[in-house]
Write a protein that binds this DNA or RNA. Structure first.
Lengths: 222, 222
DNA sequence: TTTTATCGACCGACCGTCGGTCTAATAAAA
DNA sequence: TTTTATTAGACCGACGGTCGGTCGATAAAA
């Protein structure tokens, strides 16, 4: 039986299915037929909405990132917030939007996702960097931070965190990972010229679910 | 006519052709038939030497990296060298081994290389990090450097440099790139706790060929 | 009201190309 | 000669993508 739906609804169905499959099986191991079967449509329908499999990946990544970017924009625009607090809220916002993702990764190691991961990283850098740079510059004016290269520092921190802490790329052990997070916090403070301990909240934030036994955190000393 | 060659020679021919094609067209856009045509062999021959296309990529990456790693090892083992000088020589060694690569990229933008790039990055990190960590620790003992997290700092610097300075991932402009290199040098000095200006040689080293008009460099003040 | 024209969502058989397999033929080693 | 390592290319199933066409809804024309 033929089922007809509004354009955007169908399009989002395809995007939903693709996102799930790409995340679970990896982009290259997901076939177009997999997506068709999941949505319950035919080949022609798929190519009525997208010109290629890769275009679907672009759309998935874009949709995924837009959420965090929009939250970042609105937080950065708040007039009465100090820079460190803005930074904290923006980083937290990025973390939460991947909540839906976590449920997927739990099962399988996400291998063979280099293509999607790179695309996601590049898009994140390009969209988030200008926003965060403004915040850092505000923080410098306010006296919280100190660096001659706010933009480049942010870029480097984003690249490092996204890559070093991605599950599945390197096979870090739990204790290694904890050490890396501690070191990362130190490096953030050093490169931004911030006060020692001012980014302690990152420790709590970046801990994966399997290492949150002692949760003494809570207060992030802005 | 049938041509028979020693095992290693044939194998290296395949690797050479694959490396060139992967670098020029990207891994996924290079077909096995492309490689066959380039080397002048048949399918069966190819699969006699390698079990899969991906195994060829692994071998290409491995061979590519081994050169730099071996040089790094021998440099790091020199007993009478100060840490900063070791670091300088090791980094230079990494740079030169990609000399053969430069001639290739000139023509086309290397897109679609996410898979190979990630594999190369991961391998580089895992093999170079322990060597460089030792060097940094030596430098700390000698009083040149100062950081509580030498290993993690090195990892972060490697990830950042390989990603941010790779041509084709981000489409940086010449002036942007120069600014990034300057910023990177500053960040290296800051995170390693080294004296300002002690990594000035990186500036000369990382300049792509198209921005080397004023070459006053030469002396790297170790 | 009935008819007809138009639109776009939808379908699935079909195509060329891909990575990979298989068996036979040949060259070199024993 | 017999054996083993190497080469060859026809062949296969699966893949991403194309194509000609079907169906249902809407609305203007009869």
């Amino acid at each position: 039986m033929r089922i007809s739906k509004p354009h955007d609804e169908r399009r989002n169905e395809i995007l939903d299915a693709a996102e799930m499959l790409f995340t679970m099986k990896g982009y290259s191991k997901t076939t177009v037929n997999d997506i068709l079967k999941e949505v319950g449509i035919a080949k022609g329908t798929f190519y009525h909405y997208f010109q290629s499999k890769e275009e679907v990946m672009d759309a998935v990544v874009q949709r995924f990132i837009d959420i965090g970017v929009n939250m970042a924009k609105s937080i950065a625009a708040k007039p009465d917030l100090k820079a460190p607090e803005k930074l904290f809220q923006i980083l937290m916002a990025q973390r939460t939007d991947s909540g839906r993702k976590e449920g997927m990764i739990e099962e399988l190691h996400e291998a063979n996702n280099a293509e999607m991961h790179q695309k996601s990283l590049v898009e994140t850098i390009q969209q988030l960097t200008p926003i965060l740079t403004k915040v850092i510059e505000q923080g410098i004016t306010e006296g919280y931070f100190s660096t001659p290269y706010p933009k480049e520092t942010i870029e480097m921190l984003l690249v490092s965190s996204q890559f070093l802490f991605d599950e599945g790329i390197f096979g870090w052990q739990s204790d290694e990972l904890l050490q890396k997070v501690v070191a990362f916090v130190y490096i953030v403070e050093t490169t931004l010229g911030a006060e020692k301990g001012s980014f302690h909240y990152l420790l709590e934030m970046m801990k994966p679910s399997n290492m949150t036994e002692d949760g003494e955190g809570e207060n992030h000393s802005l």
